[in-house]
Every structure is written in structure tokens, then in C-alpha cells.
């Protein structure tokens, strides 16, 4: 089977994510200014030679703050995606493979979690009780993981009844080996897609919290927070709002597109017929 070369759209998505990743890792070291440096004399100026995207009302460089903000835009969502994928895949596989009581137990808990209004719970726990960014990350894992469990379980269920799974059982292989070696590789497309989509959910979720003034502390360079803080200077320097909004949108879109392409690729790379 020939590996298709990624199309221009997919390449653009990969490039966008790579740029955000580089910015997150290097952060302030590649930023032209200190993202926290205030210069009230030069507050809320538009884009120009000195400040490419202008400054906010405290005179902080928007471009540098965007670069520094990549950290909270990447780190939290990545943690959420890793956490939900690990927990969701494990519980989904176990629920599908073991069935019966364990399945019922896991899936009824999932139903219960589904009944909770996720954003509301998040705002109450993080906003009202306090706890900051990493509490929000933890809550997001808890709130997103039911979806993963459901998706992985349903993908695993379609495989479970196939003859190759029964052959493995007839061979007398252990349950853990059947799940890890035989079941897992065949639900991998779903797992990888889940990972990327959870990343997107968390990115948008965390940014929304920051926008609402919860999560990251005031003053932190964070895309969601910048969106909120700079609304007052929208007429003086529109780029102070448009740029972080654009970055959130582009990053989320790129990850979603990648998830879509990733699913097609992995599931056609020898896993399925035709």
C-alpha cells in the first residue's frame, strides 16, 4: 500500500502546530521583548516597526505575549489529552472486553458524568472554589474522559466479536495480552483521533476559562486572557484582540484537521481491507 503524500492543507496544519509548539518550548527566549515588560508611555499603539502587532494598554508587546502565551495554550491541553487518552483507552478497552458487571459499572458512571453540564461544573469548581490553571486541567480530564471511554469502547466492541479475537481466545492467550496486542492496535485510529480532539476541547475550554478570568492569574501571557484584557482597546489596537483569537482558532482547526487525516491514514495503513 502506498503512503499518500500529505496534501497542502495538511502540511499547512502541521506547520502551524509545529510553530506553536516551538513558541511554547522556547517562549520568552525568542520573543523580541519581555512579555511582562510594561511601558505605559507606549500604551495601546497599533502595529508598527517596533512592535509588530502593537502593544496593549500597559504597553506590553502583543507579539511577545503571544509567543509566551503559547505555553499555556499547549501545555494544559496536552496534559488533558494525555490524561484522557490514557484513562479513556484503558477503561474503554476493559469495559468492551470484560463486559457484564464491569462494563455496566464503567458505562453507568460515564452516563452520570455525561449528565453534568461540563462548562458549568468547570466554572463552579475553578472559578468559585479557586484552584487556578492546573485545577482546571484536572477538572477537564475528568469531564472529557467519558467521551473517550464511550468512543474507545464502541470501537473495541465491533472488533471483539470478530473471528480473529475469538481465535486469540481459543489459543488460550491471557486477557491482558488479547487486549493490548490484539485489540488495542485495531482501535488505534480512534485513540489517536481522540487524543487530538481532546487537545482541541481542552484548548478551547482553558482559553474560555482564562477569558472569563479564571484559571491563569491576571497578567499571565495567555491567549484567552489577552482576548479579555484587550477588549477595552479594541478601537486603538484591534490586533491585540484579533491576533490571540486567530491563534486559538488556527491551532484548534489545525489539530482537528490533523485528527481527521490521522484517522483516515492509520485506519488505511494496513489495518483494513481495500
Amino acid at each position: 500500500m502506498n503512503v499518500r503524500r500529505p496534501g497542502p492543507v495538511l502540511l499547512a496544519c502541521l506547520a502551524a502546530l509545529a510553530l506553536v509548539l516551538v513558541a511554547a518550548v522556547l517562549g520568552e527566549r525568542i520573543a523580541p521583548y519581555d512579555p511582562l515588560l510594561q511601558d505605559p508611555a507606549r500604551g495601546a499603539v497599533g502595529p508598527g516597526g517596533l512592535h509588530w502587532l502593537g502593544t496593549d494598554d500597559l504597553g506590553r508587546d502583543i507579539f511577545s505575549r503571544l509567543i509566551a502565551g503559547a505555553w499555556t495554550a499547549i501545555a494544559g491541553p496536552l496534559l488533558v489529552a494525555i490524561g484522557t487518552t490514557l484513562i479513556g483507552t484503558a477503561l474503554g478497552l476493559v469495559a468492551a472486553y470484560r463486559g457484564r458487571t464491569l462494563d455496566a459499572l464503567i458505562m453507568r458512571s460515564v452516563d452520570l458524568m455525561y449528565a453534568l453540564p461540563a462548562m458549568l461544573v468547570l466554572i463552579v469548581v475553578v472559578g468559585v472554589l479557586g484552584g487556578g490553571y492546573y485545577a482546571a486541567v484536572l477538572m477537564l480530564i475528568l469531564l472529557v474522559v467519558p467521551t473517550d471511554i464511550r468512543l474507545v469502547r464502541s470501537a473495541a466492541l465491533t472488533q471483539r466479536e470478530l473471528p480473529y479475537m475469538e481465535s486469540a481466545r481459543v489459543l488460550g492467550l491471557s486477557g491482558s495480552r488479547i487486549v493490548l496486542v490484539h485489540l488495542l492496535p485495531n482501535v488505534l485510529p480512534t485513540v489517536v483521533t481522540n487524543f487530538l480532539l481532546d487537545f482541541v476541547t481542552a484548548l478551547v475550554g482553558l482559553s474560555s476559562l482564562s477569558f472569563l478570568g479564571m484559571g491563569v492569574p491576571v497578567g499571565t501571557p495567555d491567549w484567552g486572557l489577552m482576548l479579555a484584557e484587550n477588549r477595552s482597546i479594541l478601537d486603538l489596537n484591534p490586533w491585540s484582540v484579533i491576533a490571540p483569537a486567530l491563534l486559538i482558532t488556527v491551532t484548534a482547526t489545525a489539530a482537528t484537521m490533523l485528527a481527521d487525516a490521522g484517522y483516515d491514514r492509520i485506519s488505511s495503513a494496513g489495518a483494513r481491507r481495500g
Binding site: P163, Y164, S167, V181, H182, P185, N186, G270, A271, R273
Partner: peptide
């Protein structure tokens, strides 16, 4: 030991291995 061969050759083998 008893072993088996199933009807559908396309799903009898794990496609991942």
C-alpha cells in the same frame, strides 16, 4: 487442545499483525 478455522478469511486474522 481444540482449535478452530472460521468462515470469513478477511476477519480471521488480526489485520494489525
Amino acid at each position: 487442545v481444540a482449535q478452530c478455522v472460521f468462515q470469513d478469511p478477511y476477519t480471521s486474522l488480526n489485520p494489525a499483525h
